[in-house]
């Protein structure tokens, strides 16, 4: 059997007393495209921050190619081959598209701009581009260091249907070239359509992990997204339930 590229065991992360991640177990295999979904505030972005070193883990182990990631800072993790994109893109607005890509440390055979078909934008400033183009620049910058693992935070947000389809193709292409991808997104058709495996988070916990068709019909997932479709017996009109969620 193959050895996982990234192995996270019992990851926990608390901000003050608030639990953002609770004993999360995740394995990413080489060349795998894993989707991470869940309602707002479920801890998806926090999970990416924890893996890339921007959020301090409270507990748990995190290994990449068998090496302990927790001993390294964000820069070293990036150089080891863990790249990411940001929900807010975080493009370097003072640099041209080509310069944005050049900041990445590491060698790459084919220019990521050519690979994503945006080489004609090389000399433009990010501020002049459409949102869809900006997303691609963010992806190109992340790919520039030839990462082994690419973590993506809601890349499809704000894209139109055509752009989403293009993004899906690009991600499949990236995976085909041997880079593993973790895709956090709210776009269910995209995530369920292109991922090999989908992991569902709610309240900082993994509630389901499996192939897309299984996740799609999992009652727990539907409840997490739409609210439990139960009777009306759980209400407490005097507000006495408030403040008791700590015991959850």
């Amino acid at each position: 059997m193959t050895v996982p590229l990234l192995r996270a065991e019992a990851l926990s992360l608390y901000y003050g007393g608030v639990c953002a991640l609770r004993r999360i177990d995740v394995e990413i295999m080489p060349g795998e495209l894993v989707g991470v979904i869940g309602p707002n505030g479920a801890g998806k972005s926090t999970l990416l921050d924890a893996i890339t070193g921007f959020a301090p883990l409270t507990d748990g182990s995190l290994t990449f190619e068998g090496r302990d990631l927790r001993r390294h800072g964000p820069t070293q993790r990036a150089r080891m081959g863990v790249a990411r994109t940001w929900q807010t893109l975080q493009l370097f607005e003072d640099l041209t598209v080509a310069e944005n890509v050049r900041t990445a440390v590491g060698r790459h055979s084919v220019s990521p701009l050519v690979r994503l078909g945006i080489d004609r934008l090389a000399e433009r400033m990010p501020g002049e581009l459409s949102h869809g183009q900006r997303v691609l620049v963010g992806v190109a910058r992340a790919l520039a260091g030839s990462p082994k693992l690419l973590l993506m935070d809601e890349p499809a947000a704000g894209l139109d249907g055509h752009e989403r389809a293009l993004l899906g193709e690009i991600l499949r292409d990236v995976v085909a070239s041997g880079t593993s991808v973790v895709l956090v997104d709210h776009d269910m058709p995209l995530v369920l359509g292109i991922c090999d495996r989908v992991c569902v988070l709610d309240f900082g916990e993994v509630i389901t992990d499996g192939p897309p068709h299984a996740v799609r019909h999992d009652p727990a997932v539907i409840a997490a997204y739409l609210g439990a479709d139960e009777g009306e017996d759980s209400e407490s009109p005097d507000g006495s339930g408030i403040g008791k969620e700590a015991v959850r």
Partner: peptide, 21 residues
């Protein structure tokens, strides 16, 4: 906006009657 964000269903169910009232 997003009253139930990050809250347990039990707590959320306590807020709606308040809004109704």
């Amino acid at each position: 906006d997003e009253m139930s964000l990050g809250l347990a269903p039990l707590v959320v169910n306590a807020f709606f009657p308040v809004l109704r009232r």
